[in-house]
């Protein structure tokens, strides 16, 4: 009896934690359809006006275009860098491997606001600040570790004899890479692309500092929020949330489908 009581208490507790975590997300969706400028309970009437407002706003479209370019370029760049590093770590032992890995993996442990200031100053010094690709460079540094981690985990699962087997059969290292390693890592490469794109799409501190006048969506949100209470933020947030969730779910479905076909092939 006592065990069951504790079990149920813990269940309720978990539910409370989920309430705390999801309350702001759910309320933001609700408020985005609510007519009041300052939403409270009881709610005002239902409206899609805030959406109409953001879709009619050229500034929002401009920011969406910038965000799309930045996250697409970032994910490709970060995944390539991450793949190279993961493969180096998997295949080779070399001197200074510790510092090498530290150099790659440290960026996420440094607060973004510090990276933002450091990158702003350095990019101005070497003359690459205030451009859209300043954000791309910055984001690739910040997200490459995540790509590296995902791909490295996948490489852990590879049969260590697979590569030597290909060499013995006369394939060059390059050909083995192309026909054995890369296909094996493909699911991880795709998740890395999605994950790094998602991180880049949401990042605002560094983007705000180094972007100059090229605002991305989160930077635009930051500026709107600084002004006043404005439910457009909820509309933008909800819209972006559903797009990223769709991407994440599509990525999941893609893998599940692949896994199932694999399992079927094994049967």
């Amino acid at each position: 009896m006592r065990g069951a009581a504790i079990n149920w208490t813990l269940r309720v507790y978990l539910l409370l934690i989920f309430t705390f975590v999801f309350a702001p997300i759910i309320f933001s969706v609700i408020f985005s359809f609510n007519s009041d400028r300052f939403p409270t309970i009881p709610l005002g009437s239902f409206t899609t006006g805030w959406y109409a407002k953001i879709f009619a706003d050229s500034e929002v479209w401009e920011a969406a275009r910038n965000s799309l370019i930045v996250s697409l370029c970032t994910c490709v760049l970060a995944t390539i860098l991450g793949f190279c590093t993961a493969y180096s770590d998997y295949r080779y032992n070399f001197k200074f491997k510790g510092p090498y890995l530290a150099l790659v993996l440290l960026p996420p442990t440094i607060p973004l606001i510090i990276m933002a200031l450091a990158m702003l100053a350095w990019f101005s010094k070497i003359g690459v600040s205030g451009q859209l690709w300043s954000i791309i460079i910055a984001h690739s540094v910040l997200t490459a570790p995540f790509a590296m981690a995902i791909i490295r985990l996948r490489l852990n699962q590879i049969d260590p004899n697979l590569e030597p087997a290909a060499w013995n059969l006369g394939a060059s290292e390059w050909r083995t890479m192309r026909e054995v390693i890369v296909p094996f890592c493909k699911p991880a490469i795709i998740s890395a692309l999605f994950l790094t794109a998602a991180i880049s799409f949401d990042e605002f501190a560094v983007a705000w500092f180094v972007s100059g006048l090229n605002k991305t969506i989160p930077v635009l949100v930051l500026e709107i929020v600084q002004g006043n209470i404005d439910p457009r933020v909820n509309a933008i947030g909800t819209f972006v949330f559903f797009i990223s969730m769709t991407l994440v779910i599509l990525a999941q479905l893609f893998f599940l489908a692949r896994l199932n076909t694999k399992a079927a092939a094994h049967d």
């Binding site: 702001p24 949401d202 929020v225 947030g237």
Partner: peptide, 29 residues
Amino acid sequence: LLIIPFFTSYLVRTFSWYVILAESGVINA
């Protein structure tokens, strides 16, 4: 479910709290 928040904007969530916690906000209502 706990990974989902990482795919939502932290800024938007904070803004949402701002409205929820305000003097005339959801909790006080």
